[in-house]
Write a protein that binds this DNA or RNA. Structure first.
Lengths: 218, 218
DNA sequence: CGGTTCCGAAACTGTTGCGTCTCGCAATAC
DNA sequence: GTATTGCGAGACGCAACAGTTTCGGAACCG
């Protein structure tokens, strides 16, 4: 995550055949200021969250980052590349898989982490912009798909383990469960503008798990 | 719904004190072509669905509607007003409340209607654009909130009835149920690009209802 | 030291798109 | 008939913005 240089035409990414003895093969001249990358991406994230993808301008990002436009264009090929990297930037999170032995607790932890991120960081504000851009731009679609997939994987594993140890029925539709849980969070973030707190998250997990447990007869 | 002239500065909306004997108080000159309103809004919906709010241009709408830009600006004050009305346009739907006597059937019908609309019309394609615009534009936020509220109300009533007749427990958190059901649909529409079909909708309703029924002990 | 690359600031160019206006014509009222 | 308003087409002015370049200076190399 946060691999800033994916799109940027950084000089290192160009022709250096990765010398093995020396980890850093320096070139003449003043080196790039690494802090500028961070400042630019932070500013870009802020701008994207505030005005959305439509009014996302390079000038505004440069002004907020306190750098010149040339400094941005030295690192990103175009406005679109910066926009893409901004969506990618820190949307990811080291997703923890507690593996407590109880699906309920595992899911409450994971979903709580997602909800907290959406509540306490700019991620929640940026999601609508990323989704709208993804609807129109295949590259952003890939970024969004990767984000969703990375978040689902550990939760998928947690449920899978529960099925394996008999805690949940064999015919459990894992994707459906994940759609329900994730759907609630994203719905409250993007449509209700009210990300769920920990209590709601716990209730939701309990409700959905109760719904797929065989005890309930219908 | 589809009250086109909400924002437009139509001459009728201006000073006519609504004569009571004559329903239509005509003015001199050629009357406006009512079909143009439809053509413009249809074209705008198409454009918005295809390119998103960022690249939504009046020129493109005029070209697709087969009319001049002046014809659009005679009806809407600005690009923003047109964008707003486009979000409003036909996003609404006569929401039916079957009231079959079974919450399960009521909810399957209503949620199925929503899912079908998102699958078979441009509504699904437009949702991300509307959500992104709503995140940034208070007026669009109001449009989106009204849309969501109008859709929730009958489902809320259906669950409410079920609680009243003892089909669901008294402490049922109706909003939570609606967030779960709606969340799944919107999640699959906007993030998974795969709106649920009728079978999935039925499964989801059954799962969520099973989750809140008291039979499941935990 | 000179050579090279980076830096922020800002000027500059070209394009895009909003909103207005003009044109020739059509459809209504009087 | 005349007056008035609408129509599509398109030109036009103007502002915003992408992307490039230039400038004086700074940070690294030898």
């Amino acid at each position: 995550m946060t691999d800033v240089e994916t799109i940027a035409d950084t000089p290192e990414a160009g022709g250096q055949p990765a010398g093995e003895d020396e980890p850093v093969l320096r070139r003449p001249g003043r080196p790039r200021d690494a802090r500028a990358d961070e400042a630019i991406l932070d500013a870009a994230l802020e701008v994207l969250a505030e005005v959305g993808p439509a009014r996302f301008t390079v000038d505004e990002v440069a002004a907020r980052a306190g750098c010149g436009k040339a400094t941005i264009y030295r690192r990103w090929r175009s406005r679109g590349a910066l926009l893409l990297d901004t969506g990618h930037h820190r949307l990811g999170l080291r997703v923890t898989d507690p593996d407590t032995g109880s699906v309920r607790d595992d899911l409450v932890t994971m979903l709580g982490e997602l909800a907290r991120k959406m509540r306490d960081t700019l991620a929640g504000k940026v999601m609508p912009a990323v989704v709208a851009e993804a609807a129109v731009n295949p590259e952003m679609r890939a970024v969004l798909a990767a984000f969703v997939h990375d978040r689902r994987k550990p939760a998928f594993n947690a449920i899978s383990r529960a099925v394996g140890r008999g805690e949940l029925p064999d015919d459990t539709d894992i994707d459906l469960v994940l759609d329900l849980l994730g759907g609630l969070v994203y719905f409250r973030v993007m449509l209700a503008d009210d990300p769920p707190d920990d209590a709601v998250v716990a209730t939701v997990v309990d409700t959905v798990l109760a719904g797929i447990r065989p005890t309930a007869g219908r």
